[in-house]
Design a protein around this nucleic acid. Structure first.
Lengths: 204, 204
DNA sequence: GGCGTATGTAAGTGTACACTCACAAACATC
DNA sequence: GATGTTTGTGAGTGTACACTTACATACGCC
């Protein structure tokens, strides 16, 4: 273990670290506000190397977006299997969607990944980002439809709620839910709700 | 009319021009991606003067956000009066919300203002922006509730749909609605819909 | 017409940041 | 242990952009 003891990893491993750091950075600050320098620091490498692993900042953003779509579908898939094992194979599409909806946040690491979808929408003025985002959303929509067998209307409602929950999380509505009937409304809670276990992530 | 014929306006008038330009710029490129220089050009003044009228870029963004919330409420209000005159004063809350929802886009100039709300959510990591956005959303929620008399659940659904429509517009889903069943689903259209008059803005 | 005020700008400053390039250190293979 | 390849960095470059300062031009008022 010399002082210059450089721990080399494969490019694939580094890429993974960078993507994870990028998801966090971009989800928080958006595409324009996110910095490759901070991503590099978070991933434990130099900034130029980030740009060698992903040719441009935009390419990295798009890769992160793609990953998030995969993760969300993966999390949904796992939850669906859990539900089916618990309740038998005869659950209705609506029951399945409801189950996915109730545990929406728990699926995705600290809501960050959902926020990245929001950031993608915000940056969708860029054609390449827009194209990628559309593809990702298509995949999610199709998966929801195919996996649960639900109809358009149900998937629509599910998705719309998801977006609203994401925005509610973005503006930290959950912070002052006790004092604000608005927050309560946005979080889809009944007026007499006292707990947020069903919608908040189990953070930290 | 000399060549240096400077047309002076009052600061209030300039501020108005700047806010309109800012809404367009920020709605398109977001808070971080938006440029005060471009806003200045669009408003027909120099960039330093933009920052004299609004102390900082952030202050301008927040002012634009506030304005948009007012505009949206104003547009809703006008539509509500129209509906009541058309159908008499006995319309139910649900009918009123439905009317607002059907013409959602038409209310707001080319969907830009709704996109700014999305951009605000994306930039809500910043505490001041977040605070302003929360206040604006609160006002909108309260107005919807008070003006229509609808209950939480109905307002929630209305809002969630609005957010989804905004995102659909951001990713230009409407562009390829003919070829994509996804776009159709996101745009809340029944599967046999042939026209988008109900949801698309009358642009140009 | 002089004077105070409001409207406006040219030019500059500092900084953040995406991206480049030349070079170095670790590893694999023979 | 020489050689080629992959992993990695230090030190820049150019540029975009928020913000500042010092100055100019129009306007109202007496």
């Amino acid at each position: 273990m010399s002082t210059t003891g450089a721990k080399r990893q494969t490019a694939a491993e580094r890429r993974e670290d960078v993507i994870q750091a990028a998801i966090e950075e971009f989800a928080t600050f958006g595409y324009h506000g996110g910095s490759t320098e901070r991503i590099a620091v978070a991933a434990g490498i130099s900034q130029p190397y980030v740009l060698r692993l992903f040719r441009t900042k935009k390419a990295l953003f798009i890769a992160a977006l793609e990953r998030v779509c995969d993760d969300i579908i993966g999390a949904w898939d796992a939850e669906l299997h859990r539900i089916r094992q618990e309740k038998g194979p005869l659950v209705t599409p609506d029951e399945q969607l409801q189950a996915l909806g109730r545990t929406y946040y728990r699926f995705v690491r600290d809501v960050l990944e959902l926020r990245l979808v929001l950031q993608g929408s915000a940056a969708a003025e860029d054609q390449e980002i827009r194209t990628q985002l559309k593809a990702g959303m298509s995949r999610m929509f199709r998966w929801l439809r195919d996996a649960t067998g639900a109809d358009y209307e149900a998937v629509r409602q599910f998705w719309a709620f998801g977006m609203m929950l994401t925005i509610a999380a973005s503006i930290h509505a959950v912070d002052d839910v006790a004092e604000s009937e608005l927050a309560r409304a946005m979080l889809l809670l009944p007026e007499d709700a006292v707990s947020f276990d069903q919608v908040t992530p189990t953070s930290g």
